[in-house]
Design a protein around this nucleic acid. Structure first.
Length: 570
RNA sequence: CGGGAUGUGGCGCAGUUUGGCUAGCGCGCUUGCCUUGGGAGCAAGAGGCCGGGGGUUCAAAUCCCUCCAUCCCGACCA
């Protein structure tokens, strides 16, 4: 490819509305352009990277026994009504109507479509297991599209669905995918970590997320650094290790104190001269099942995912000031569990071990002291509902966990029979018994993977593509485009490399050398081949590795050999 | 959806508070000269219904109303 013919519009200035590096660099290096919020055009360089990622995915899916198919993006509402997700999926589902006023959705995922397909095609245990996948655009009307390709409303995803006779078969399929995903992200040159996760709206039991470790990640992951311990979890899922209570303290008599104007944990603890750990924080939520009160220690935070799961709700919103006043009879800041009625009360495990705690008195400007859970109030549910933080003990081995940020590039789910039951996808087993097919689903964000790769591989000058997914392997830069000898050698190098299978760009643009060097670094070619005046005269080239900056030379007649050697090591 | 902000040639911005006559600057683009190992220099150019609509005014990029778009901060997902 000649750079003069390549549509790769690079830019020196950083676009004002790009916040994260991957977004900035994708724009600056001429990989993407925005069409609407969360919707992008992929320019030729990006398409080359995406194709490589997709190729790696295809190879690993096929190796694991997957078969590729292609399902419609436009999906009829009926199927979504059958599974109940027409309602549950909510405003994230892009909806549209045809000329006859029939309703459709733009597919955010394809459980409905594929299960409907399989219920028609699979009748016998002999046809199972089955692993089917596709790679195509997905549509999610995100509440807040953000960070370029990291969270788009239209994005490319690989989704595979497994169909098995029983749980055991599902376990096998799940394991295959776990291993395939591990290989895929390794091959893409990413530092990542599979973590336990919450299954969220898709439903199902077991699930892992594949997290690329990067500071710009939106998810927090906790993992154990001890050798041999493999515990790793999304904070949403991370379980707390119960600490010992303050057994030495003797419960005192319940009483209350005036705390005029002191509402927050910090204010109250400061005013009363106690540590935040002595306070029971009461957080009120509204749900579709009524109001819920979450009780946690003052220095903790509610894990709303856990709370949602504990309550068995779909919606969970922080209660407003009016709702709180109606329920507690006091303004925000004075809610407490003692004597509280009209809310479903969920206490965190830690709260039940507290002795002589402090909590709001459901009265303006007053808090109870010497509150003892079990004696002074009885929660409806006792459960693990708090966020675990870095530094807390590993549930498996007790060592302190490390907390980092991660970008979720893939997730695998055990769905069970949720969708097969809803849509009637059954088969006859060896005994002639009708059974629901046991399913799993497995997604990879292809466009997000590209962005994540940049988050992890860049420097001040630009992108540093891992060789396996780089748009090109090498760029050839003649220092002066007017120097016939240099151009001739550059052309010869280009012919040799292209012939030997190196994906090469010849920068033949009428630009000064500095401009070409800057662009080469920005675009992130793993290898740069420079031909200067002397090199042209003496028939050699200069090679520079983007990642290390290491420079070497090679004679023209051996250039392809040396290039391949260098590429091997990348 | 709440909270905050922005919208002026392709990109980055100034001008808006205090309305005023031909709307500026840098980058990029075109042409020529010159230069050629890290985004050179000089010269001459092209390119803007100042996000849309409505209003106030002798006069609106600037004030008011309204709509739209985009970005950032909070709850979900690949």
């Amino acid at each position: 490819m000649k750079a003069s013919e390549l549509l790769a519009p690079t830019s020196r200035s950083v676009p004002a509305d790009a916040e994260v590096v991957s977004h900035q660099l994708l724009l600056r290096a001429g990989f993407i352009r925005r069409a609407a919020a969360g919707v992008y055009t992929y320019l030729p360089l990006a398409v080359r990277v995406l194709k490589k990622i997709m190729q790696i995915i295809r190879e690993e899916m096929d190796r694991a026994g997957g078969q590729e198919l292609l399902m419609p993006i436009i999906q009829p509402a009926e199927l979504w009504l059958e599974t109940g997700r027409w309602e549950v999926y909510g405003p994230e589902l892009f909806r549209l109507k045809d000329r006859h006023n029939r309703e459709f959705a733009l597919g955010p995922t394809h459980e409905e479509i594929i299960t409907a397909l399989i219920r028609g095609e699979v009748n016998s245990y002999r046809q199972l297991p089955l692993l089917l996948y596709q790679i195509q655009n997905k549509y999610r009307d995100e509440r807040r599209p953000r960070f370029g390709l990291m969270r788009g409303r239209e994005f490319i995803m690989k989704d595979l669905y497994s169909f098995d006779r029983d749980e055991e078969g599902l376990d096998t399929s799940y394991k295959k995918m776990y291993e395939a995903y591990t290989r895929i992200f390794q091959r893409c040159g990413l530092r990542f970590r599979p973590v336990e996760a919450d299954s969220g709206a898709i439903g199902g039991s077991d699930t892992h997320e594949f997290m690329v470790l990067a500071d710009s990640g939106e998810a927090t992951v906790l993992f154990c650094e001890r050798e041999g311990c493999d515990y790793a979890s999304n904070v949403e899922k991370a379980v707390q290790v119960s600490a010992a209570g303050s057994a030495d303290e003797v419960p005192a008599q319940l009483s209350w104190k005036d705390t005029p104007g002191f509402r927050s944990v910090e204010e109250v603890s400061g005013f009363l001269g106690i540590r935040p750990e002595k306070i029971i924080k009461t957080v009120l939520y509204t749900t579709e099942k009524g109001i819920a009160a979450a009780l946690i220690k003052g220095d903790r935070e509610v894990n709303e995912i856990k709370l949602l799961n504990t309550l068995g709700c779909v919606r969970l919103d922080l209660a407003g000031a009016d709702e709180i006043r109606t329920l507690t009879g006091a303004p925000v800041g004075y809610a407490g569990p003692v004597g509280l009625k009209g809310a479903r009360m969920v206490a965190d495990l830690e709260v039940m071990k507290m002795v002589n705690a402090v909590c709001g008195a459901n009265r303006n400007g007053a808090h109870y002291i010497n509150v003892n859970p079990g004696r002074d109030f009885k929660p409806d549910v006792i459960a693990d509902i708090r966020l675990v933080k870095g530094g807390e003990p590993c549930p498996k081995c007790g060592r302190p966990l490390k907390g980092t940020k991660g970008i979720e590039v893939g997730q695998i789910f055990k769905l069970g029979d949720k969708y097969s039951r809803a849509l009637g996808a059954t088969f006859l087993d060896e005994n002639g018994q009708s059974k629901a097919i046991v399913m799993g689903c497995y997604g990879i964000g292809v466009t997000r993977t590209m962005a994540a790769a940049i988050e992890q591989n860049h420097d001040r000058d630009g992108i540093i593509w891992p060789k396996s997914i780089a748009p090109f392997h090498a760029v050839i830069i003649p220092v002066s485009h007017k120097d016939g000898a240099q151009m001739a050698v550059a052309g010869e190098v280009y012919r040799r490399l292209t012939l030997s299978g190196v994906e090469t760009v010849l920068d033949d643009r009428q630009e000064r050398a500095g401009v070409k060097f800057k662009d080469a670094d920005l675009i992130g070619y793993p290898l740069r081949i420079t031909i200067g005046e002397r090199a042209a005269a003496e028939k050699y080239v200069e090679l520079r590795v983007r990642r290390t900056g290491g420079v070497s030379v090679a004679p023209l007649e051996r250039v392809e050999e040396v290039v391949w050697e260098l590429l091997e090591d990348l």
